[in-house]
Structures are given as C-alpha cells and as structure tokens.
C-alpha cells in the first residue's frame, strides 16, 4: 500500500462509500423503476388500496397497544429495583434480533388452533390465526420491543434528584409518573412509538406464517408486495416505493424527536 493512500482520508472514504452504495443503489433502483405515469394507478389500485388500509390500521393499533402495555413495563425496568432485570431486558430485546419466521412459528405454536394455549383461547371463544388480530399480534411481538427499549432509556435519563424531590413532596407513584416522569421523557416515548410504527408497517415474516394472506383481511403491504411481484411487478414496485418514502419520513420524525428530547 502506498504511503499516500494510508495517510490520506481516502482510506475512510472509499470503504465507507462502498457501504453506502449498498444501501443507496437498491433503494434508488426501486424509486427509479417505479416512477412513471402509472405510479398512482399502481399504488392506488384496488388490491393495493386494501393492503394500504389494512397496514395503516393494524400498525396504528399495534403502536397504541405497545404504548399501553409497554410504558408500564419500561417504567418499572427503568425506575424500580426489581429482580432478574437483566434477564427481563434480554427477553424483551430478543424479538428484535430473532428471524421473523421464528416469531411467526412461535406465535402459531403458542396461540394457533392446536397451540399450547389453544384450550384457553377456545374457552374464551377466540380463534386468532387468519384474523386481523393475528396481524396485530405478530406486529406487536416484533415491533413493541423497540418502543419498550426507547421508553426505558427515556425514563432512565430522568434525574434521580427530581424523583427524590417529588418523594419529599409526598407524591404517590401515579403522581410521580404523570407529573414528573411523563413530561420529562415524553419525546423519548413518542420517538419509540414512531419507531415501532415504522417497524410494524414493514412486518412480513411473522405475519405470513401466523395470519396467512387474504386480501382485505390479513394481506398487509409487505405481503401484497411479495405476492404482487409475481402477478404485477408494477404494483409491487409502487407499493415498495411508497413504503420506502413513508419509512424515511417516519425515521426523520424519530430523529427530530430524539434531538428535542436531548435539548
């Protein structure tokens, strides 16, 4: 290697550019090939519209449920002294790295008609597979950990002195949570929620296994893309482009919220 190369900035720029190109080229290829006169006809065709609607509703429900059930969990992990904290955090992080196919199979084996908890569900008159509820459950399993993680970090960053001060003032746990914790970590929670929403929009692997694929009932955008590319590449490309743009916008929102949280 020449000394010139080793001393120059290029030793960083070249490999970095290769890495960037890997992200940029495929994504821009989709944008380039999908752009055309028929983009809107494709993106808003009957099947695509149904998938868009279902994806929007299920991912919104997923995000709300993640906030409803994830916030207390994150709060306890961040501010309480509880046993097995590390093990619990590991359990919550696990779905982030697991292959979605494992998640889908796990849900099926647990909550399917022949699943381990099938008798309990049957007693309640609930049958999950092939329903929009199964879509939400799959998204929640895969995406909620992102919210819990963000919320946990947000709660943990609240100054302990403020907590003590509130204690001295005689605040009960609920007042502590609503008057001290929520206002101070609100943006971290929102940022986590948007991240979860983005991930839920993109969920595919667990959904196709656990919820199946039926237009208007369980066929979300990623599924319409997967099957659409065999029927009509135009629709698949248009939906992909739409998902790329929406996801990019949501990620921008996440960054903005994170910045505000730390200012």
């Amino acid at each position: 290697m020449s000394k010139f190369f080793l001393r120059s900035k290029w030793i960083f720029i070249l490999p970095g550019a290769v890495m960037l190109a890997l992200f940029l080229l495929p994504l821009s290829a989709i944008l380039i090939r999908s752009s055309g006169d028929d983009f809107f006809a494709n993106a808003f065709s009957g099947q695509a519209l149904k998938a868009l609607r279902l994806s929007f509703i299920t991912s919104a429900v997923t995000t709300l449920l993640a906030m409803l059930f994830g916030t207390p969990l994150a709060y306890m992990l961040a501010r309480w002294r509880i046993r097995f904290k590390t093990a619990l955090e590991l359990l919550i992080d696990l779905p982030i790295v697991l292959p979605p196919s494992v998640a889908g199979l796990a849900l099926l084996i647990a909550f399917g008609r022949r699943g381990i908890f099938a008798p309990a569900l049957e007693a309640l008159g609930v049958s999950l597979p092939f329903t929009p509820a199964a879509v939400v459950l799959a998204q929640l399993f895969v995406a909620a950990p992102l919210y819990i993680r963000a919320a946990r970090i947000g709660f943990a960053e609240v100054d302990a002195q403020l907590e003590e001060a509130a204690n001295v003032e005689g605040a009960n746990p609920w007042q502590m949570f609503t008057a001290v914790m929520l206002p101070l970590s609100g943006r971290a929670l929102l940022s986590g929620a948007v991240l979860t929403w983005t991930r839920a929009l993109g969920e595919f692997g667990a959904t196709i296994l656990f919820a199946g694929n039926l237009e208007g009932v369980t066929q979300t955008m990623p599924m319409a893309i997967y099957l659409g590319f065999e029927r009509d590449l135009g629709v698949a490309l248009a939906l992909s482009a739409l998902l790329i743009v929406v996801s990019a916008l949501l990620l921008m929102l996440v960054r903005r919220l994170d910045r505000q949280q730390h200012d």
């Binding site: 399917g112 008609r113 022949r114 597979p129 196709i208 199946g212 694929n213 039926l214 997967y226 099957l227």
Partner: peptide, 20 residues
C-alpha cells in the same frame, strides 16, 4: 370459507398439518 391464499402448495399442506 377461504381464510388464506398461500404462496405455494407446501404452505397449504403445512397449514392443514398444523390443524390451523
């Protein structure tokens, strides 16, 4: 009565084998 349109025939077999 159709609850799912699977991506290939083996997926149909699997869903019936699992009893779903």
């Amino acid at each position: 009565n159709v609850v799912s349109n699977e991506d290939n025939v083996k997926q149909v077999v699997a869903k019936v084998q699992l009893g779903e």
